[in-house]
């Protein structure tokens, strides 16, 4: 029986799938820099979430989530809308604190410390755990001032140090060549894809070790999306990245590890290749083959 989703595939794809019967979804090649066969057990944990429950008022949206994110790797969080993946992402730098009436139990260890403790300095935590949002949010300032914002609010005043930092961050975000001659111009004049890379550069400027990305490419065109994906491949050599995405192809291209959320539960987590070729849960298989969601 040919499912609807398979009719959308090209004959070549269908043939490739026919030759490998265990493959649920044909996994596209990974972007450069992401080695999906990497042995992650060699990497110490950057983030360890244990028994996390999250509530909006009386409404529980996360149920006993346990997840370990290895250092210098990319973890993709997938799942249908409203499954709690973005909520989980935002607890990792306590951005949910900004929403009134939220409550969280359980623990999240970063560098051996439980960041859910009330005594945690969230300002320091957010410098260490950077974040990039779905909608690019450049400040209405110059490109330079955007990137220099994080270090400046942290107290850096030295113009030369800031200039070096801005250049290196823009280079890491693959934006330097495009903007080096117009650092003083408004960041709002950049294209959508450039703005998103600027936001990544801005997040890198606080020298974080963990980078959270909440659907960073969902508002971008295919060319810009591909640039962001390549960038993730480059950055994961030095940063731990957690990315929420609705795009299955993207999750499989850029991540070492994939976690599937459904209705507030972490259904399955494992190496990306395994999740996309032989998931152990029926629910995961149904989701990634497009039977629901």
């Amino acid at each position: 029986m040919v499912t609807f989703i398979e009719t959308l595939r090209s004959p070549i794809e269908r043939k490739a799938m026919a030759t490998s019967p265990t493959t649920v979804l044909r996994v596209p090649p990974a972007v450069a820099g992401v080695d999906r066969d990497m042995d992650m057990s060699q990497h110490p944990a950057a983030i360890t979430a244990r028994g996390m429950n999250f509530y909006y008022g009386e409404n529980q949206v996360l149920f006993d989530v346990n997840l370990t994110v290895p250092e210098r790797s990319v973890t993709a969080l997938i799942g249908p809308s409203g499954c709690g993946k973005s909520t989980f992402l935002r607890t990792l730098n306590r951005m949910n604190d900004l929403i009134e009436g939220t409550r969280c139990t359980g623990e999240v260890l970063i560098q051996g410390q439980n960041i859910m403790e009330p005594a945690v300095d969230v300002v320091l935590l957010r410098k260490h755990v950077g974040m990039v949002f779905q909608k690019s949010t450049p400040f209405p300032k110059s490109i330079f001032d955007n990137v220099a914002y994080g270090p400046r609010v942290a107290g850096e005043r030295n113009r030369a140090i800031l200039a070096d930092l801005v250049e290196s961050c823009l280079q890491k975000a693959a934006l330097w060549e495009e903007v080096k001659d117009r650092l003083g111009e408004s960041a709002m004049a950049l294209s959508g894809g450039q703005q998103q890379r600027l936001c990544i550069a801005r997040a890198l400027a606080t020298n974080p070790q963990i980078l959270l990305m909440d659907e960073p490419a969902s508002a971008l065109d295919p060319a810009s999306t591909s640039r962001i994906e390549d960038l993730i491949g480059e950055l994961c050599a030095n940063y731990t990245i957690v990315i929420v995405t609705h795009n299955m192809q993207q999750a499989s291209r850029v991540s070492h590890q994939t976690a599937f959320f459904f209705e507030g539960n972490l259904v399955e987590v494992g190496p990306t290749t395994q999740i996309f070729t032989s998931p152990s849960q029926k629910k995961t298989e149904d989701y990634i083959t497009g039977r629901f969601g």
Partner: peptide, 11 residues
């Protein structure tokens, strides 16, 4: 979103 972005940068 401007406030969120600024707070996320450790401001």
């Amino acid at each position: 979103s401007i406030r969120t972005a600024s707070l996320a940068l450790g401001a």
